[in-house]
């Protein structure tokens, strides 16, 4: 299994605050990696580094053949391979669901308007929102907005999808509908890295769980590792989380 994402000894500080302290892990094609840990453990920063939203201070990150740590990185070509979904959805408020999705394919891939619209219909159907194409973000619930955001990323046909605490702003019911979409994606073979607080979801869907603590990868293993933690830190984290 070839690695789609490989972090080796990644360091990152914000001022004097060491956020990533020698982080290494890799994710293979079709794998679903769940990054878990307390707030401030560096998990979101690690995710943002993978997409070059933060520049790292040391180490290497390879993503779909792009050397992300390299100063000469072509960020736009990296972004064609990597989709990211944020906690706050970040839909464009002045555009309908469909227009939100059509924007990148028409601007970046220069597909025709009709083609972009078909694409939008297709991905909206995949997230179960075919009938909401003409709705504006403010007319949608949080869960629906997040599903549109996922669809918007999918429309660019990424090789890797990153999810940054995408359900943290949602109530349990809306969380469920978003997680279901993500589970379908995982079943479809999408390579995914998700930073999440949904332990049950991580255990069920993730092929690899990465537990981060104090800027380090503290423990890593299959979902089942959450049931038999080897370190006291993970034990107490899982204990408090469930």
């Amino acid at each position: 299994m070839s690695a789609v994402v490989k972090l080796s000894n990644v360091y990152k500080s914000f001022g004097t605050n060491k956020v990533l302290d020698g982080v290494s892990f890799e994710v293979g094609r079709g794998e679903v990696a769940a990054v878990i840990g307390q707030s401030g453990s560096g998990k979101s920063t690690a995710l943002r580094c993978i997409n070059a939203l933060e520049t790292i201070d040391g180490g290497t990150i390879d993503v779909c053949g792009h050397a992300v740590h390299d100063e000469k990185l072509d960020r736009r070509s990296l972004r064609r391979d990597v989709g990211i979904v944020f906690q706050s959805y970040n839909l464009f408020p002045h555009l309908t669901a469909e227009q939100n999705i059509m924007l990148a394919p028409s601007c970046v891939k220069k597909v025709s308007k009709a083609e972009a619209r078909d694409l939008a219909k297709d991905v909206l159907a995949r997230v179960g929102l075919a009938e909401k194409a003409g709705h504006y973000p403010e007319q949608l619930s949080g869960g629906q907005q997040q599903r549109v955001a996922i669809a918007r990323s999918l429309a660019m046909q990424p090789k890797l999808m990153l999810f940054d605490e995408v359900t943290s702003a949602l109530d349990p019911q809306l969380t469920g509908e978003v997680l279901k979409v993500m589970e379908d994606l995982a079943r479809g073979g999408m390579t995914m890295i998700l930073v999440t607080h949904e332990m049950a979801f991580a255990r069920k869907v993730a092929s690899q769980v990465v537990y981060m603590h104090k800027g380090k990868v503290w423990e890593t293993g299959p979902g089942a590792m959450l049931d038999s933690p080897r370190t006291p830190e993970l034990a107490s984290f899982v204990g408090s989380g469930l």
Partner: peptide
């Protein structure tokens, strides 16, 4: 800022981000 980040992550160029994501809602 999160709007720009989202557009940037979708691969839009700076002029495209300005036109589609910043100027239009700003003027509205």
């Amino acid at each position: 800022k999160s709007q720009l980040e989202a557009a940037d992550c979708l691969g839009l160029s700076k002029p495209q981000i300005y036109w589609h994501v910043i100027i239009r809602p700003a003027i509205e």
